[in-house]
């Protein structure tokens, strides 16, 4: 059997999801044996940027024409496009610019630009091209990435959790930070898959994996209200990692 041809490509972002791939230290050499990595600029200087790819993993969000052009080229040359990480899936931290005056933000950071600077409001991959699979997380979880590769090698798509972080938190028998400590925890409205990492360390969930599309928003809103947590704090916090549409706000 021919090994599937794979590209690991970064748009604008922190490279955290590519770093998680490199952090699979125990599996890395098996991984590069099982797939044919054609294009991985962060790890190698021998890249083939033209040939067909069976799978392209794309990290980061689109914040420039250059990003958008690259993403369209990748879409054309790949069969399965996987959005890798919350920036790719939802837009991530850069989309905090959604309700703000972007030219003013640019001036605030860079001063007055006297030249044409390639920049545009931050977008998720699905806002530009068709995405076949979403792997959220800021960064992605190692085991979910490896499970995804294993499933793709067998011709399947992976089963990823679509329930809320609260489900995993209850399984770990943690004390509830929202109900018992009245903290702004996004567990009820954020998608699971992290084994409730933060609440397990007494840290409220910041929603870095993005919203849970299967959340019971009415019940979450009632629970926040009962515990004296202001809804505007919840929404502001949710919008840190994803420009959550109103239909997915509690």
């Amino acid at each position: 059997m021919n090994k599937p041809k794979v590209g690991i490509i970064g748009l604008t972002g922190c490279s955290g999801d590519q770093l998680v791939i490199l952090n699979c230290e125990d599996q890395l050499l098996d991984l590069v044996g099982a797939i044919d990595i054609r294009d991985f600029l962060t790890a190698t200087s021998a890249n083939d940027t033209e040939s067909r790819l069976d799978v392209a993993f794309v990290e980061g969000s689109v914040v420039s024409q250059k990003d958008e052009d690259l993403l369209r080229r990748v879409r054309e040359r790949c069969t399965i496009l996987v959005a890798l990480g919350t920036c790719a899936v939802w837009g991530g931290i850069p989309t905090m610019d959604r309700d703000q005056d972007r030219p003013a933000l640019l001036r605030a950071v860079y001063g007055d630009l006297n030249w044409e600077y390639d920049t545009c409001p931050a977008k998720a991959l699905h806002e530009v091209v068709k995405v076949d699979l979403n792997l959220p997380g800021c960064p992605i979880e190692k085991d979910q990435f490896l499970a995804t590769v294993a499933n793709l090698l067998n011709g399947n798509l992976p089963l990823l959790p679509d329930y809320a972080v609260c489900t995993e938190c209850k399984m770990k028998e943690n004390n509830c930070l929202l109900i018992e400590k009245k903290q702004v925890c996004l567990g009820p409205v954020s998608v699971a898959g992290c084994q409730a990492r933060c609440p397990s360390l007494n840290i409220p969930c910041v929603g870095c994996r993005g919203p849970c599309t299967d959340a019971n928003l009415k019940s979450a809103a009632a629970t926040y209200a009962e515990n004296g947590v202001a809804m505007e704090d919840v929404i502001r916090k949710m919008k840190t990692f994803a420009p959550v549409p109103v239909s997915e706000q509690p």
């Binding site: 604008t12 972002g13 914040v63 250059k66 931290i93 703000q100 933000l105 605030a108 950071v109 860079y110």
Partner: peptide, 13 residues
């Protein structure tokens, strides 16, 4: 430098 601008310092204000 070809990295895009994410404006993080402005966004934390």
């Amino acid at each position: 430098i070809y990295e895009g601008a994410r404006l993080i310092e402005a966004l934390v204000v």
